[in-house]
Write a protein that binds this DNA or RNA. Sequence first.
DNA 1: GAAAGCAGTGGGAGCGCTCCCATTCGTGCG
DNA 2: CGCACGAATGGGAGCGCTCCCACTGCTTTC
Lengths: 351, 351
Amino acid sequence: MPAARGGGTGKPGPTLEQVAARAGVGRGTASRVINGSPRVSERTRAAVQAAVAELGYVPNRAARALAAGSMDAIALVVPEQENRLFAEPYFSEILRGVSTELADTDMQLLLTLIRDERGRERFRQYAAAHRVDGVLLVSVHGDDPLPDLLRDIGMPAVISGRRSHDEHVPYVDSDNLLGAQLAVEHLIGRGRRKVATVTGPLDMYAARCRLDGYHEALRAAGRPDGHLVEEGDFTEEGGHRAMRRLLEREPGLDAVFCASDVMAAGARIALREAGREVPDEVALVGFDDSAVARHMDPPLTTVRQPIEEMGRAMVRMLLGLMTGRRERAVRDTAGQHHLVLPTELVRRRSS
Amino acid sequence: MPAARGGGTGKPGPTLEQVAARAGVGRGTASRVINGSPRVSERTRAAVQAAVAELGYVPNRAARALAAGSMDAIALVVPEQENRLFAEPYFSEILRGVSTELADTDMQLLLTLIRDERGRERFRQYAAAHRVDGVLLVSVHGDDPLPDLLRDIGMPAVISGRRSHDEHVPYVDSDNLLGAQLAVEHLIGRGRRKVATVTGPLDMYAARCRLDGYHEALRAAGRPDGHLVEEGDFTEEGGHRAMRRLLEREPGLDAVFCASDVMAAGARIALREAGREVPDEVALVGFDDSAVARHMDPPLTTVRQPIEEMGRAMVRMLLGLMTGRRERAVRDTAGQHHLVLPTELVRRRSS
DNA sequence: GAAAGCAGTGGGAGCGCTCCCATTCGTGCG
DNA sequence: CGCACGAATGGGAGCGCTCCCACTGCTTTC
């Protein structure tokens, strides 16, 4: 389904040829100046730059891409999950970071929302056809084949969050385990006796890590009471249901660690319905430090991830991979491409 | 600052030429099939399509763009305001709509965050160089020169929200005035006597409309008490401060209409600080129906805008403008390019 | 003092596509 | 039966750029 074609969109603007003519140099030389090659005399450089300024020259991206074989563009791929939620603040933050880091580059950012198998296949073709030079993958599920697929076709890619402990694809992650541990230690430190947890979908590694952190903190405190576990799905509704199940199983629980703020919001509602006071009867801690955390009543204690910084780090890593591939071919610098950023506890009144 | 250049990014994939050879036809014919031209015999079409499938051919976008002069891409431009907030849920929703509507197209979506004068200039050049075929402008301030600038260089553009009542640039807006009116009527209908409002920044037309709706509702109820107005800036902090000022001016107020949910969240905090119960002593209504509205305690009555639908409508309008320009040159169909979508009141417990 | 370097430069050869001008048929008409 | 005309097709001419080879004057080296 071709969408818009046909003869040209408007006045084309000056070409390299015209710039070169105006500067009184050859096309090659003008190109060299524009691309910052060192092999140009100072005089010539100045002349070309003047011509560029006078003519308001802007390189034609399509021509450049065609000739050079690279697109000067990276794709940010967002699988829009079935549940369509995809924690919104997370996304915005990542985007901000990515965009910030890209601002000093003349890379373009292509946004691709994949919502079904058709979309996935479309993107696969895109990548295979090298329509972008690199890919940032956000919110990847454990069984997502896309990362390996990209590796197979030699497309540089960085994912946010590992899919498993020994993820081999370059990634930027945050320290989910330690974050969860901090949260639960905090709860224990406040004298809570029966600490439950609402996990994320356990086919996601991040969710698994947060659960491990929960167990780890309990174990470290010499308290093997880590059986109060219910699985949620990172949605408010899921948190709500999981909390209800917990209350049924153990009416006497006095603390809950939720693996996301949104689920904590759901849990909060369930607690209110059950007439439990927060934090007096039940302490509540979330994860993400998203906007809802601040707006809950009482404001939610939570674990903060440096999401914007993760976005920036992903771009830096991807850019490195991209130039790296050119400069040192396949020299095995393997590694350096795994980054885990620290998380921190943000104390508010819910605990 | 060239970022990534150098020799090609990888194995190039089959070209049109190869497809044509395989199908035993000429390059031109193959092109015709791929672009759905009717001037091809059924037999030939089938042969080419088979070759495409066998070879896994995907057209090279750069080459196409270069030859055809159009980029098959539109830019979504988001000025990232000074206050850096840019109501996040709004953005995500728009994005979802845009992306959905674009899914059936082979248009690319380029995301451009403009954060300073430099970025703005960079984008201006982009547009001038026709690096995209159309532009979607989100969250435009009243004094933003970008829309007119784009018109001057002949770049199709659609903005979300008018900048003034007689906006001449194509736009998709929601009925802010009626929405605000509904909200305030609702408040009056619930027996509230002293209805205040926290407005958005009044250099934004949308904020102005919501204020007008407030006044209109009051006037219609025969109550010219529309003096309890304080200006906010669409941030939580701003809402908080504005609410404090209102309470100072009129401790006896019993209802507040905030021009955004986020400001309502700020106002909620100020009310809590002042010991006012919501909704018993003071009823609160917001605008946007964003996520915070549902998570507030009590959940916030608010005015819903069909944001995702606005995103979709913007794309449809832009696509229309883009093909329109080609097909009927400058025939003055002027109009049809202003769309105002309805808003509705969502009642929750805060009022 | 001649050979050999090298910085600086010009411009040809494509990149893969679309556009469009032929060219080749087949058919309808005078 | 010959001519004209349209449908179907082939392929040349670029689109604006980057890459790279060839070329010019110098300066360096033995």
